[in-house]
Amino acid sequence: MKWFITPQELRRQGVVGMNRRNTQMIAELNPRSRYPLVDDKLQTKAVAIAAGISVPELYGVIETNHDVRHLPAIVAGREDFVIKPAHGSGGNGILVITGRVGEQFRKASGLLVDLDGLKHHVSNILSGMYSLGGQPDRAMIEYRVRFDPLFGQVSFQGVPDIRTVVYKGYPAMAMVRLPTRTSDGKANLHQGAVGAGIAIATGVTGHGVLHNDIVDQHPDTGAPLGGIAIPGWGRLLELAAGCYELTGLGYLGVDVVLDRDLGPLILELNARPGLAVQIANGTGLLGNVECIDARAAQAALGPADRVAFVRGLALRE
């Protein structure tokens, strides 16, 4: 493998770079006024529930340091839960509790943390440590997704999620993000999670990407990443495509988790989805983006028709 790729080759493959993403996709397609909707996960949750889109149940919200004393009451009787900042980005500040050991709580990594540790974490969230720009934030405590055993062999603790990049309402590309030992149960690629590309047409996974390198097996479990067919793929894509109407954002990352009991749940939305999805799928976004541009200029379609268009596009190739 060469240690670099020429710009001509990148262009030929239709790879979108950071600069193009920031100017032509985010700056032009995502009106700034709609950002709070996705940056604030509480608002996202509210509009998603109103639109009938399923999301993990909210146990409670802590808004001030004074309210931190309510934390024991919120988590009382709950074996597992997730604490996350309402304005977090990049998966920072998300604390996943998978169970209790006496007075202690067990983190997704298996390490134990006591109630003081939880309260300190909530205080950090409230003081804005994990929020964009460091503004004071709110902490939300919600349902911990019990993930579908589908990805059991290819994830190390934590919750694998399916990231779909939705361009102008059309699901342009997707990957499943699998936590690893180094990512501490988080499904963010830059924290060390593995991303595996998913063929839009079929919902079957392909090879994976780990730290910008291509891998075929999960680094911790050794199980092959490819060949996993995601059940209800069409419905999942429609769910993701529907988030376009929900938010009005033309370049959107939709993170969906497959819950064992509840099926696909929207975990969060991202107005600045990253570009690693291109490595996971082994090709650039531009190919699909151009087809979608042409189609979107012709007619305004509903979510189901948009999904059908994109899947047809992939089959034709």
């Binding site: 493998m1 060469k2 240690w3 670099f4 790729i5 020429t6 710009p7 080759e9 990148l10 030929r12 493959q13 239709g14 790879v15 770079g17 950071m18 600069n19 193009r20 100017t23 032509q24 990407v209 910008n212 390198d213 291509i214 291109q278 490595i279 082994g282 090709t283 650039g284 190919g287 190739e317």
Partner: peptide, 24 residues
């Protein structure tokens, strides 16, 4: 430069695994 949409030099490294792949 504010409207520069080309690749960053660091991206030539980041996307290097895509080198030699045909557009599938």
């Amino acid at each position: 430069l504010g409207r520069y949409t080309g690749y960053r030099l660091s991206e030539l490294l980041r996307f290097r695994v895509l080198a030699g792949r045909s557009k599938s």
